[in-house]
């Protein structure tokens, strides 16, 4: 029974890990109205070494970027990447994945 408990606890802890341990950055963008627009953003941000995951929500006009653990992109770089993609930055919001603290 004790062994079963340890196994279950280990499995629970394993699945309790976040998908990526780094920072999450939410970027609001103007002009993001089509699938090809979203693909451009995905390609440009996806080429950054610090980026682990990227998701584009056309309805919310929101780019959600998951950073690799211990890495980030500063606001200036994010603004430049949005502009390089062909769109206009509205706002940047940073969320710590582990602590859940908004900045």
């Amino acid at each position: 029974m004790k062994r079963l408990f340890i196994v279950l606890a280990s499995v629970t802890l394993l699945f309790a890990q976040p998908a990526f341990a780094g920072e999450t950055v939410r970027v609001n963008v103007n002009g993001l109205v089509c699938d090809f627009c979203a693909r451009a953003v995905e390609k440009v941000f996806g080429g950054q070494a610090a980026v682990e995951t990227i998701a584009v929500d056309l309805s919310a006009k929101l780019i959600t970027i998951g950073m690799k653990d211990g890495q980030t992109l500063d606001d200036g770089t994010i603004t430049k990447l949005v502009n390089d993609s062909g769109y206009a930055l509205v706002s940047i919001e940073r969320v710590e994945a582990a602590g859940g603290q908004d900045q």
Partner: peptide, 11 residues
């Protein structure tokens, strides 16, 4: 692309 107008809900 000489000019792009990026608006909240249009382009």
């Amino acid at each position: 692309l000489a000019k792009r107008w990026n608006n909240p809900d249009s382009q």
